[in-house]
Design a protein around this nucleic acid. Structure first.
Length: 298
DNA sequence: TCCCAGGGCTTGT
DNA sequence: ACAAGCCATGGG
């Protein structure tokens, strides 16, 4: 095991390498973790979890031993050796620098339904707005959870969201994506089994996902990576496109060319490489060609 | 004010 | 297969 954990009355104390709460929750993979002072609070699969990091120890509460091993261990991808992975990136100076910058990122294994809707919302949108839209959708259609004197809202189940109207989804800020959201909710509520996607290869999963309106190649890659556990999925958004053009290609090119290049360069862990690159690019606002010469020095 | 944001769809070549 | 326009919204 790459981690150590102990339990004290509804609290789990976790020690592991390569786990930083800020990096993990702010790297653009999840939209429902909220920072409040020195703690993060998230609503995940109808459960509220608090987390606080002090040095290399992370406290999770409320979290029993059973819940930890049955759910959170997988959710936080605790059995993967991220240190070895980063080390394997060392031959590529660009990627290695980005990986060191975001070395505390863990790829969360998130619920397929919530991930699907969330990344439909993400298209041509900003992370700040995505968070707000998903928050409002949860408050309007999700089940209320009272916890610790506060009110939280679970992400709405398919039957709850399928009762929404386009008009109300637009009021949540979804814009033209409202009809995509509703169509997906109805499709799932009427019997499409998202669970079956877990049994498919990445190629098959892509094909299935793209059948949803509002899901194209990029969003399908996000769902494959953040929910289905396909670490070779490689979402190409505007930041990744700019970074890859700057660092590896040298001029503007198609998204298809970027994906082919990524597959060649990064292989089976391309998705994790993508996360380091995305986080590095966005945090450092890598969008000017003049920065190449500075950033490329390792 | 314009530009951009974790893009996708439709239409035209 | 590929390109161009359009899409709703708000932050910078």
């Amino acid at each position: 095991m790459g981690f150590a954990v102990r339990f004290e009355k509804e609290k789990a104390y976790l020690k592991t390498a390569n786990f930083d709460l800020v990096q993990t929750f702010e790297c653009g993979q999840a939209f429902r973790w909220v920072c409040c002072g020195d703690k993060y609070t998230g609503v995940v699969s109808s459960k509220v979890l608090n987390m606080r990091q002090t040095g290399d120890e992370i406290c999770l509460w409320p979290c029993t031993e059973d819940e930890f091993y049955a759910f959170w261990m997988d959710y936080f991808d605790l059995e993967r050796d991220y240190a070895a992975l980063i080390e394997s990136f060392r031959p590529d100076p660009v990627l290695y620098k980005a990986a060191c910058f975001g070395s505390g990122i863990r790829i969360l294994k998130q619920d397929i339904w919530e991930t699907l809707i969330s990344f439909i919302v993400s298209s041509n949108n900003s992370i700040h707005r995505i968070k707000g839209i998903i928050k409002r959708i949860s408050e309007k259609y999700g089940s209320r959870i009272s916890f610790g004197g506060e009110e939280y809202y679970a992400f709405p189940k398919p039957d709850q969201l399928s009762k929404a109207t386009i008009e109300d989804l637009v009021k949540c800020g979804a814009g033209y994506r409202a009809e995509f959201i509703l169509k997906a909710a109805i499709k799932v509520n009427e019997g499409y089994t998202l669970r079956s996607l877990y049994n498919l290869s990445i190629e098959e999963a892509r094909k299935e996902l793209i059948e949803f309106s509002g899901i194209g190649q990029k969003v399908a890659e996000c769902i494959c990576l953040y929910s289905l556990g396909h670490m070779n999925a490689f979402p190409v958004d505007t930041w990744i496109k700019k970074s890859m053009e700057l660092y590896y290609i040298g001029s503007a090119c198609s998204k298809k060319a970027i994906m082919e290049q990524a597959k060649r360069l990064y292989g089976v862990n391309a998705g994790i490489a993508q996360q380091y690159l995305f986080y590095y690019a966005r945090e450092n606002k890598i969008n000017e060609i003049v920065k190449i010469n500075v950033d490329i020095e390792v």
